[in-house]
Amino acid sequence: MKYFNGLVQNEWMKATSKRQLPYYYIFLALLAIGIGVVMRLAIGGRGEYAAIESMNVSISVLLTISSYFFIVVASQTITDEFKDGTIKQILIRPASRTMVLMSKLANLLLIMLSVYVLAVVLSAAVGFILFSGDTTMTIMDVLRQTLLSLPSALFYMLFAFMVAVLTRSLGLAISIPIIIQSLSGLTMFMANKSWYKFLIFPNLNWEGFITGNSNALPYEGATFLFTLVIYVIYMLIPLLASIYAFNSRDIQ
């Protein structure tokens, strides 16, 4: 376990030394401020809009953009090692290849966590500074909404990770998940098909289960258990495919 922690620390050190992550944090801060200022200018007075509502809007914009950032980072954590040849350096150590992959995934989760926390904190700070109006929305509503974006973000990140391991191509690893994500909306037209519920896309939306609002269910008769099972299966496939491919390859 101590060894594994060391590997995760390594991944974190690499991610933060690359400048990309620190710069992204700065970008998020500027974006949060920008969104707040634009809303304030458009709306006018401080009391005419609620801090919580502003926070909600800001978080959703920040996290939508961040879902692409996660895809990029997940791809790069693999493809950069191949591109720089450092993959050889890390695979000639006692760490098994599976362990190397797991440490990279653990680090991706840390990055994701840091971005989520930052998005919430920044949006809240900007919201409360710029707005003071009334609303029925609570902090809990905002946090719940925030967490509901996690299943989708995790899935596409893992998918990008898999494509990166399988193809070692940064371009493919970034574009394939983004294309799938963009086209996923089209599958709604297949909602009446019997196999629709076996697709991953409707099962990424957990809102109906968490809020108890039956209008928000992804399809009729959806149950949380079924959705969880489908979700776990769709998460295991890229995970196992990555582990298998990574272990069985010769490294040139």
Binding site: Y3, G6, L7, Q9, N10, M13, K14, S17, K18, R19, D84, G85, T86, K88, Q89, I90, I92, R93, P94, A95
Partner: peptide, 26 residues
């Protein structure tokens, strides 16, 4: 070992590279 070229993390310092590989050494 060094297989072919001395591939290291260019964006990190020499010390960080050494710490990185020390952690991997077991």
């Amino acid at each position: 070992a060094i297989v072919e070229n001395p591939e290291l993390y260019k964006f990190m310092t020499g010390r960080q590279n050494l710490i990185h590989f020390a952690r991997m050494s077991g």
